[in-house]
Design a protein around this nucleic acid. Structure first.
Lengths: 340, 340
DNA sequence: TTGTACGCGTTATCAA
DNA sequence: TTGATAACGCGTACAA
């Protein structure tokens, strides 16, 4: 380490080597047909030979494009480490794929929400051509304000009335409805809902949960609605709370697979069996869902497709084009946690 | 969207507003004590008021610092989506934390290995102040060459003789030894090893596996060494292969928790019970390990600490300072998959 | 088909 | 304590 450090070649160095002007070299490297084919090939060969790479920073300054998209993950609670949530991970991976396919880099930011207006600041810090926010969280207003201001920003999350930015998200209401309807159809009578309904997406899932009850001609017990954040620890805390409460239940709709796994574990600790005593439905269809004991019945979100759409919208936004919110269909995946 | 787009304020705009020169403003924003305190405060207030933010690109061009560290994840196989591996995700999350604590951004690249010299190219593309490679994979030579060339690069992975870059990694030999010794000590007689020993880290784990046999006065059966990549699909394929093979075994050391979960599942499909019929030890202590059925006995890697060390080394490297390879202790975590 | 000249927005050097 | 001026490395009108 700390070795030779070959002096970095600059474009004018390369021009000197080639006996050309920098403009010609610049155009040749871009394969600009204005330049004679022979010249282009010679310059490109020279560049390879001398290990020359365009300085992306200078290029950005001049062209006002960074070739980078920022992905920001709002952290709801300091303690949360949501990057460990399989949904975030999966989304991140697919975004990385979709972006690199388009030749873009991914700048990752985890930003503590409500730390003043850090989300807005991060968004405004034009270090990237556009910003993708994973999960509006409580930041809808900040994102919306930035978007109104002309910041190219899109988000994964719920479609909200009057929003000024494009979103891609699952049909959360349908997801919540499918989950609850499935349990009710299988003879479960008293369903609990585990999730933080202050988050727009979760609120919509809960809407669907309520609607399924209406459609089934029953009512849900609001004392069985327990707030649980996506973080593993809080999911465990909330699960224990629900299990140790006095209100009986025989079905649970959870806002994520992590939460579903937590409640199953908490039930087991109390000697209750899933699915015999309680049916559980998760959300996400995370990779772990199939491996859980028992395998999780869950609502599948189409992450890969969603990531591609988000990237499309983000790139469009970076060009100043508007985009329409997209709501993606979800699927109920029935596994062992809900049926015998 | 595509709205007003407030014209972006430049530093000289702000200077004009303040009635100062750009030099003074630049220094005032940096809180340079050369500038009168009153002036500094006035400028900073003005900046906030007008929503001014330094253009990071121009700043980089001039100062030759990007405030960004690149994290590259070599993809061994096109089909692999290693970002879904809990180890990578965890590492990434902790790196993001450690970097943002130091005020750095994280540029994420997934690079297809052996796509010519893409790793080297990415590394050389000074879009970041330093590069952290997660998992040397097969790229040791490329990384080493870049490092010899003066590229500030560090890696998570195995300590290899004569390397020119700093590494942080677990004591893989001890990990492999602990895992195998634990199974042997509990009466298992015939141990299989599931993992791709062409990867330096896995090779070292296998070394430890062999060593445990020697210490125990037994021999391992080389037909029970089955290559398995970290990807979920290949882990399942390899697990089925091992289970359907003719050679009997009563213990498995897996190179990751994902692989451990896969073999347990494959055994279950064949009607074999873990831990009764076969004892299984994983590697990583991923969050899912405790949730698996049965909960996984595993070798814990100290990710958070490792991430911090990697960041320290990367920043040191960006300053041209050398760093020493670090090998971190591992711990055997005994859970239900290895003992009754 | 190639070259000249300027500017992107900042920081560093030197002078005042 | 502040200001003038020159880079940083590249892209692009405009000229040749």
């Amino acid at each position: 380490m700390g070795h030779p450090r070959t002096p970095v070649l600059t474009m004018s160095d390369l021009a000197a080597i080639a006996g050309l002007s920098t403009s010609t070299v610049s155009r040749a490297l871009e394969n600009n047909p204005l330049i004679a084919l022979a010249t282009r090939e010679r310059v490109q060969a020279l560049a390879r030979e001398h290990n020359y790479a365009i300085n992306p920073v200078a290029r950005s300054l001049r062209s006002r494009k960074t070739g980078t998209i920022a992905v920001v993950v709002p952290l709801v609670h300091e303690a949360d480490q949501p990057l460990s949530d399989p949904f975030f991970m999966g989304m991140l991976g697919h975004l990385a794929d979709a972006l690199s396919e388009r030749g873009y880099d991914l700048l990752l930011s985890k930003v503590p929400v409500h730390a003043d207006d850090w989300v807005a600041r991060t968004i405004r810090n034009r270090r990237a051509d556009a910003v993708i926010v994973i999960g509006q969280s409580f930041e809808h207003d900040a994102i919306d304000a930035a978007a109104r201001d002309g910041v190219p920003v899109v988000a994964w999350g719920a479609m909200l009335p009057g929003q000024h930015y494009a979103t891609v998200g699952s049909d959360n209401r349908e997801g919540g409805r499918l989950a609850a309807a499935h349990l009710l159809a299988n003879g479960r009578k008293r369903l609990a809902f585990l999730g933080n309904i202050e988050l727009p997406e979760v609120a919509q899932r809960f809407d669907g949960f309520v609607r399924a009850h209406v459609e089934h001609g029953t009512e849900h017990d609001s004392s069985l609605v327990v707030p649980a954040h996506f973080g593993r620890e809080d999911a465990q805390r909330a699960s224990r709370e629900l299990v140790q409460g006095e209100v009986r239940f025989d079905g649970v709709v959870a806002a994520s697979d992590i939460i579903a796994a937590s409640i199953i574990r908490a039930l087991a600790e109390k000697g209750l069996n899933v699915p015999r005593d309680v049916g559980v439905v998760g959300f996400d269809d995370a990779p772990l869902a199939a491996f859980n004991a028992p395998p999780l019945t869950t609502i599948r979100q189409r992450l890969e497709e969603g990531a591609k759409l988000l990237v499309n919208l983000a790139l469009a936004a970076s060009r100043g084009e508007a985009g329409e919110p997209i709501e993606m269909p979800v699927d109920l995946i029935v596994r062992g946690s809900s049926v015998q």
